Simulated scan of single mutants.
Amino acid sequence: MKKNIVFFFLLLSLSFHASFGQTWSLDKSHAKLEFSVTHLMVSNVEGNFKSFDAKITSAQDDFSNAVIELTADINSINTDDDQRDGHLKSPDFFDVAKFSTLTFKSTSFKKVGDKKYKVEGNLTMHGITKKVELDVTFNGTAIHPYTKKTIAGFKVSGKLKRSDFAIGATVPGAVVSDEVEISTNAEFVKG
């Protein structure tokens, strides 16, 4: 009887591992979470979040059906202008005193071409959760020459509307575009 119980738990453990696969952690020194908006309808203003973390869990080597989770500290927003950054943190935009983080968790990660994927998931910003779809390019894997760990590279891009998240609701689109372009480049380390 004891052998059967041990065997059962061993099988359960193996099936759990097979179902959820490997975890890939963000290499923060080789990652950027950037955005861009149009200012006064004539130029682009770019920014990023300095503090964010992400992980990928995948049972497949090609990352099909992977699960991606991301969290960013809104207080780390950076547009290379302290006054503008302060305004973005204010209740006029992100209101970091009430909503200090943004989160994303994928609900679908599907291959649509050679190294091309569509990721869908729930993005929460400013207390509002909306489904978003982003384009992903899988840049491949490599063995890091020093750590000997497997790394994977991804580029993620897409667009969303700040009005969907009630960010800058009183700021007209002619001043700051409603459409926000998202661009992320990141390396992940296996294990």
Rank of each mutant, 00 (worst) to 15 (best):
K111Y: 04
K110V: 14
K118H: 14
I143W: 02
H126S: 09
K148Y: 09
G127S: 06
V112D: 11
K159C: 08
A166S: 12
K110S: 15
H144L: 02
R162A: 04
K190C: 03
K116E: 14
V175W: 00
K116V: 06
K115Y: 06
Y146D: 11
I182W: 06
S183K: 11
L123V: 09
V176C: 02
N139Q: 12
A166F: 12
D114T: 14
N122P: 00
E120D: 15
K115W: 02
H144A: 12
K116I: 04
T147A: 10
K116Q: 15
A186T: 09
F188I: 04
V132D: 01
N122W: 03
F188G: 02
F154C: 07
N185H: 12
T170H: 12
E187G: 04
K161T: 06
D135F: 05
Y117R: 12
I167F: 02
E187P: 02
G113L: 03
V176A: 10
S183I: 07
K118Y: 13
E187H: 05
L134S: 01
V180F: 00
K111T: 09
S177A: 04
E133R: 02
I151S: 07
T150M: 10
V189Y: 09
G173H: 03
T129P: 03
A166Y: 11
N122V: 04
V189C: 10
T137S: 13
G140K: 03
I143Q: 13
T141E: 14
K159V: 13
K118I: 15
P172D: 11
Y117M: 08
Y117C: 07
G121H: 10
T129D: 01
V180N: 01
T141C: 02
S183M: 11
D164M: 05
K116A: 13
T150A: 10
H126Y: 10
E187R: 04
P172S: 03
I143M: 11
E133T: 11
K161A: 10
K190Y: 01
K155P: 00
K110P: 13
K115C: 05
G168M: 01
V112L: 07
F154G: 11
V136H: 01
V136S: 01
S163G: 01
F165G: 04
G140C: 08
H144N: 15
K111D: 06
